[in-house]
Design a protein around this nucleic acid. Structure first.
Lengths: 152, 152
DNA sequence: CCGTATCCATTCCGATACTG
DNA sequence: CAGTATCGGAATGGATACGG
């Protein structure tokens, strides 16, 4: 009768999914990384109902991913910008985008590259490596208690 | 009246979200990476209704992330395993988990580390770097058409 | 321009029971 | 063990209109 709740699970992935994994949130963040800051711009680009957009933005602000700050020309107006916590999501979003690139556009490669605007080079695929630089396969990753409590 | 659809968008992130971003899917994948393969084991670990689990597994199989293969001892029984496409999600999941580690357990650090079971070292944070090895900031990532079509 | 309020159809999801 | 069937309440999300 009650939807199962995972947010307070002792798992960073579950918590992350709860905060940014709702329908539309990652697309909002994609736009935020692209420089969109205003309500109506999000709405126009995402074709998402104003209702839903309001709810998602609220949650992202409450969760510390976005913040509202005054617009330069008009201090009474607010706009949404990424917090450091939000900017730190870049890695996750890049990883997911790269995965989508590789697997969700076959057989034709997808038509957009991510490039470093400073040196102009294409951003290569992220890889999981250990502290020694060794490439780590998925099955080689182990979860290990760092203090006392147990993983959920 | 109709829920906005993003799946066929010309954006790898939107497509990825559509396939693996539904409520519960990433947790199923977390368990799959952890070695869970059987229906009832997923169900017991995730406390998710059998209904929903059925639907999510179906979608993941249809999308090519999981596959069903015969169990060794009993060839008539099937179990769910990650495909190469599914295993390639490790990077995304690690990135998201690390982000949750950093931001969603403050002030106490979260109690589990990801370690490389081969060399025993903790897996350091993933970073976005360009082909030259330069650390790329979120604002420095630009999307550039690689062929002709336009990004959505 | 930035939301909020209300309405309502649709979907979602958990509970339960049942089948091979 | 691995689902499927059905049900009903709850949440979702789009449309629209309104207010600061």
């Amino acid at each position: 009768m009650q939807r199962t709740v995972w947010a307070e699970a002792n798992c960073p992935l579950a918590r992350a999914v709860d905060l940014i994994g709702e329908w539309g949130s990652l697309l909002i963040l994609r736009e935020a990384f692209g420089g969109v800051r205003r309500f109506d711009d999000f709405q126009a680009r995402l074709q998402m109902s104003r209702n839903l957009l309001t709810a998602r933005l609220k949650k992202l602000v409450a969760g510390g991913v976005l913040m509202q700050q005054p617009v330069a020309e008009n201090a009474r107006r607010l706009e949404y910008v990424l917090t450091p916590m939000g900017e730190d999501l870049a890695t996750t979003i890049v990883a997911m985008r790269q995965w989508g690139d590789r697997w969700l556009f076959a057989p034709a490669p997808h038509p957009v590259d991510m490039v470093d605007s400073v040196d102009g080079g294409v951003i290569p695929p992220l890889e999981v490596r250990s502290a020694t630089g060794r490439r780590v396969l998925p099955s080689e990753i182990r979860l290990e208690p760092s203090t006392a409590r147990q993983e959920n």
